Simulated assay, not measured.
Amino acid sequence: MANYYSSSRTSSCSGSTSKSIFHNNNNKEQDHDQVDEQQQQKQLIIDEQMRKRKRMVSNRESARRSRLRKQKHENDLTDQVCQLNKEKKVLITGMNRITQKYLIIEAENRVLRAQMVELSNRLQSLNEIIISFINNGNIYYSVEPNQDHHFFTDNYNHINAMMLQY
């Protein structure tokens, strides 16, 4: 019986050893699984941090490009303003020159109109004097022996034609 006990002990010891080994193996596997899980979690965190870092670098680069585009656009607009100001000065200078010419021509035109009115009045006065002389019979002419006696009639018709023009 002693053997029985010893063998049963041995078997029970070996059973508990196998349980303990299984338990140890199980614990090792669990520990290994936990380590794997922790490593995976760490890797996920590292991957997430890397993605965030890449995104941050990408965003910074995008912001830098955006600032450069904005600066270039601002420079282009500044250049355009300078060019437009130059064109404006040229146009203003041309417009001032044309305005001066216009004023000179308008003054000349006023002078010419005044002269025309004066000459028209003088012509009308002369025509009235001529008509007055004709109507009053105050025109004296002499007929010389070699002249044609149609002198007065021809001159009268010529004077009438001139008066009808005005």
Rank of each mutant, 00 (worst) to 15 (best):
E87N: 04
R110F: 08
E74A: 05
S66E: 10
E118W: 03
V90H: 08
I104S: 14
N127S: 11
K88Y: 02
R67D: 14
L103V: 13
L112T: 10
E108G: 08
S62F: 15
Q100C: 13
R97Y: 11
N85E: 10
I105Q: 05
K88H: 06
A107E: 13
N121P: 02
Q100F: 13
H73R: 14
S125R: 05
N127P: 07
L103G: 11
A114V: 10
R110M: 07
E61Y: 04
N109L: 11
D79E: 09
G94C: 12
H73E: 11
N75K: 03
R122Q: 08
V90E: 07
Q80W: 05
N75A: 10
N75Q: 08
Y102G: 01
K88N: 06
R67W: 09
I98Q: 12
N127W: 12
N109H: 15
L68Y: 08
K101L: 15
Q80H: 11
L112F: 04
M116T: 14
S120A: 09
R110I: 06
R67I: 15
E74V: 01
N127T: 14
L68Q: 09
S66D: 09
L112M: 03
T93Q: 03
Y102R: 01
I98N: 01
R97E: 14
R122H: 04
V81G: 03
R110S: 03
K89R: 05
R122V: 12
Y102N: 02
A114R: 03
L68R: 00
N85S: 11
V117F: 02
H73G: 01
Q100W: 14
N75W: 00
Q115M: 02
M116R: 13
L91D: 02
T99R: 15
C82Q: 03
I105C: 04
Q115P: 02
L119S: 05
L91Q: 09
E61A: 10
Q124Y: 05
Q115F: 02
Q124K: 08
V90G: 04
R122M: 08
V111P: 05
T93K: 03
N75Y: 01
K101G: 04
R64A: 12
Q115R: 05
E87Q: 05
Q80S: 01
N127F: 06
E74Q: 06
K88C: 12
T93M: 11
C82Y: 04
R69V: 03
L119P: 02
